[in-house]
Computed example of a mutant assay.
Amino acid sequence: MKDDNVRAFLKSFDILTNVEIDDFIELLTYKNLKKSEYFIKEGETCKQVAFVLSGSLRSYYISDKEEEITYCITFPNSLMTAYSSFLTAQPTQENIQAITNTELLIIPKNTFEELAQQSPNWIFFLKTIAEQQYIELEKRIFQLQRSDATKRYAEMLKNQPEYIQKIPLQYLASYLGITQRHLSRIRKEFSF
């Protein structure tokens, strides 16, 4: 079952062969994060990528005012890493924390690099992932600048209805760029 989620995710890119996907799945290790545990903390160097099987994580940084700013929430069936640190091998400036109990499948960076040496398909896959990360970042910026918080909340509710209620108000408000009070008013609009 768990393998099926990863397999479907990798097949959706239409880049890798079935053998390459099988080989990748064999290299994954299972990891369970309890609610509030960290995948990585600021100052550490990220040396792995995770596929999120279940649960959700938040990526946040500490502002100059010592506030936690949640800028990314990761849901199941997606890859997750401290991307800049992963690419540069420099310490990360972010924290990635489990919002709920979370199941991950982990692959180390050096194993990914070995796969890329074995097949150009992996290089193309990594390039595609990098492009998707850029597009998601651009979409997030446009969303924050063009949409109001109600539209941003509605979009999250549409895409992740089963998880959005599990995200603590302060994290969700921070992610949406609004106060908790404003978020409470928005949520009332969507109550049935």
Score class of each variant (00 low, 15 high):
141 I>V: 12
81 T>C: 05
158 K>M: 11
71 Y>M: 01
55 G>H: 03
166 K>A: 02
77 N>S: 05
63 S>E: 12
144 L>D: 06
136 E>F: 11
155 E>I: 07
64 D>Q: 12
38 Y>N: 12
160 Q>W: 11
86 F>T: 09
69 I>S: 03
131 E>L: 12
78 S>Y: 06
96 I>L: 03
120 P>T: 14
138 E>M: 07
147 S>A: 10
86 F>K: 03
115 L>T: 03
34 K>E: 15
64 D>V: 06
66 E>V: 04
108 P>E: 15
131 E>G: 08
166 K>E: 10
165 Q>R: 09
121 N>K: 05
130 A>P: 15
132 Q>H: 13
136 E>P: 03
143 Q>I: 00
34 K>D: 13
156 M>R: 09
32 N>S: 14
73 I>L: 07
50 A>I: 00
131 E>D: 11
107 I>G: 08
107 I>H: 06
174 S>M: 02
103 E>S: 15
147 S>H: 14
50 A>V: 01
113 E>A: 09
88 T>W: 00
38 Y>K: 06
140 R>A: 04
103 E>I: 12
97 Q>E: 15
48 Q>A: 12
49 V>T: 11
77 N>K: 08
110 N>V: 06
36 S>G: 07
53 L>K: 10
88 T>A: 02
118 Q>E: 11
91 P>D: 08
67 E>V: 03
35 K>D: 14
69 I>E: 10
39 F>H: 09
107 I>W: 03
81 T>R: 00
156 M>E: 14
147 S>V: 02
60 Y>Q: 04
86 F>H: 05
99 I>F: 07
30 Y>C: 10
173 A>K: 04
39 F>A: 05
31 K>G: 02
106 I>L: 12
167 I>T: 04
78 S>N: 12
57 L>K: 01
93 Q>G: 09
83 Y>H: 11
44 E>P: 00
147 S>M: 09
54 S>W: 04
55 G>D: 02
158 K>V: 02
45 T>S: 03
106 I>V: 14
78 S>V: 00
56 S>Q: 06
60 Y>E: 01
70 T>I: 04
119 S>K: 00
148 D>M: 06
30 Y>A: 12
160 Q>C: 05
84 S>R: 11
153 Y>L: 07
94 E>C: 05
47 K>D: 11
127 K>G: 06
157 L>T: 13
58 R>W: 00
148 D>N: 15
31 K>E: 07
82 A>D: 02
71 Y>K: 08
133 Q>V: 05
159 N>R: 15
147 S>F: 12
175 Y>M: 02
141 I>W: 05
94 E>G: 04
95 N>C: 04
92 T>A: 00
167 I>K: 01
153 Y>F: 15
108 P>N: 15
38 Y>P: 03
111 T>G: 04
82 A>V: 01
77 N>I: 00
60 Y>T: 10
150 T>R: 14
90 Q>N: 15
78 S>H: 06
64 D>A: 11
136 E>L: 08
172 L>W: 01
32 N>F: 10
40 I>G: 03
35 K>G: 09
33 L>D: 08
94 E>V: 09
40 I>N: 08
171 Y>N: 05
52 V>P: 01
169 L>F: 00
110 N>T: 09
50 A>G: 09
68 E>G: 07
169 L>Q: 13
170 Q>K: 14
67 E>K: 14
